[in-house]
């Protein structure tokens, strides 16, 4: 069992407060970004980046992943990579849905025929 010295604990507590402040600031930035007069794609990209940063802060410092063995970090990162792959795997379906919606004959037109 690892025993932490009082100095280590005090240092960790200071870091927790810094991370808390960063998370709060980033949350406010997220709220501000959605009202920014810029393209929706740019807003979406910024929000994804901000969310990834916040998630990384929680994982690295609150869950102590930064201090763990690297293999454990790989285990934790694997689901994130698999989820990105999953999104790409769903892209053909996404294309099919969009095609079906844009080329479908309107119900009123088929009723006349």
């Amino acid at each position: 069992m690892t025993v932490h010295t009082p100095e280590q604990i005090a240092k960790e507590e200071r870091r927790y407060m810094q991370v808390f402040l960063w998370l709060t600031v980033l949350t406010f930035v997220e709220i501000g970004v959605i009202y920014a007069p810029i393209a929706r794609l740019a807003i979406g990209s910024m929000l994804v980046l901000l969310a990834a940063t916040k998630a990384a802060l929680v994982a690295m410092f609150f869950m102590h992943l930064a201090a763990e063995k690297r293999t454990l970090a790989y285990i934790a990162l694997t689901p994130a990579l698999l989820c990105v792959l999953l999104v790409f795997a769903l892209l053909p379906d996404l294309g099919a849905i969009t095609r079906a919606l844009t080329h479908a004959t309107p119900p009123a037109a088929t009723a006349h025929e």
Binding site: V87, L90, T98
Partner: peptide
């Protein structure tokens, strides 16, 4: 991922 696929496939 399912949410994303449904959302961006629906204008």
């Amino acid at each position: 991922a399912g949410y994303g696929a449904l959302r961006y496939g629906d204008p």
